[in-house]
Computed example of a mutant assay.
Amino acid sequence: MITIYHNTRCKKSREGLEIVKESGKDYQIREYLKVPLTEEELSVLIEKMNISPIQLVRKNEKLWKENYKEKDLSDKELISVMVKHPKLIERPVVENDRKAVIGRPASDIKEVL
């Protein structure tokens, strides 16, 4: 099963959803702003992406710039910040059973389809 972590207000996220739909594969949508991820879920996603937590942070968000940019946060602290403020998570994220990707560019989504 494919899961897309989706923000309906984001153009890139909507583009990613279209790619997932066009694949013809079974998928589910998780609107992560309405149904936030737990620290464990986010940790698993990051592990599946084979990235560090800072690579998943939307660094241009005002919230990040004003509250966290200048802080030296550990990976665990970064995950906690993203769980507390899910709008700081890059989007869309698409995952399958073994792998996950950030859909930027949207063509990267094809790696998990």
Rank of each mutant, 00 (worst) to 15 (best):
M1S: 13
M1C: 07
I2M: 10
I2V: 12
T3S: 06
I4T: 09
I4Q: 02
Y5D: 00
H6M: 01
N7D: 08
N7M: 05
N7V: 08
N7H: 11
T8L: 06
T8S: 15
R9G: 02
R9S: 11
R9A: 11
C10N: 09
K12P: 02
K12R: 14
S13L: 04
E15L: 14
E15H: 13
E15Q: 12
G16A: 04
L17N: 08
I19W: 05
I19M: 11
V20G: 03
V20E: 03
K21A: 04
E22S: 13
E22A: 14
E22D: 07
S23W: 04
K25R: 13
K25A: 03
K25H: 03
Y27S: 02
Q28E: 09
I29F: 03
R30Q: 11
R30H: 11
E31Y: 07
Y32F: 14
Y32K: 15
Y32H: 14
L33V: 08
L33S: 02
L33A: 02
L33K: 12
K34E: 07
K34P: 08
V35N: 15
V35S: 12
V35A: 12
P36L: 03
L37S: 12
L37G: 07
L37P: 08
L37E: 03
L37H: 08
T38R: 15
E39P: 12
E40F: 10
E40H: 15
E41W: 10
E41Y: 06
L42P: 03
S43R: 07
S43M: 02
L45D: 01
E47Y: 11
K48P: 08
K48V: 01
M49Y: 09
N50H: 09
N50I: 10
N50W: 11
N50G: 14
I51A: 06
I51C: 08
S52P: 12
P53A: 03
P53N: 00
P53T: 02
I54D: 09
Q55T: 04
Q55H: 14
Q55I: 05
Q55Y: 11
L56V: 15
K59W: 02
K59R: 14
N60D: 09
N60T: 12
E61T: 14
K62L: 11
L63H: 07
L63Y: 15
W64I: 06
K65V: 14
K65G: 10
E66P: 00
E66W: 09
E66C: 12
N67Q: 09
N67V: 07
N67S: 12
Y68W: 13
Y68Q: 09
E70W: 09
K71D: 01
K71N: 04
D72V: 09
L73G: 00
S74M: 12
K76T: 14
E77G: 02
E77V: 05
E77N: 06
E77H: 08
L78Q: 05
L78H: 05
I79D: 00
I79Y: 05
V81D: 00
V81F: 10
M82I: 08
M82T: 10
M82V: 11
M82G: 07
V83Q: 05
K84Q: 06
P86H: 04
L88G: 09
E90V: 02
R91S: 05
P92G: 04
P92K: 01
V94H: 06
V94D: 01
V94G: 02
N96Y: 01
D97N: 14
R98K: 13
R98A: 06
K99D: 03
V101C: 08
G103R: 11
G103D: 00
R104Q: 07
A106W: 12
A106I: 11
A106Y: 10
D108A: 15
I109W: 02
I109D: 00
L113E: 00
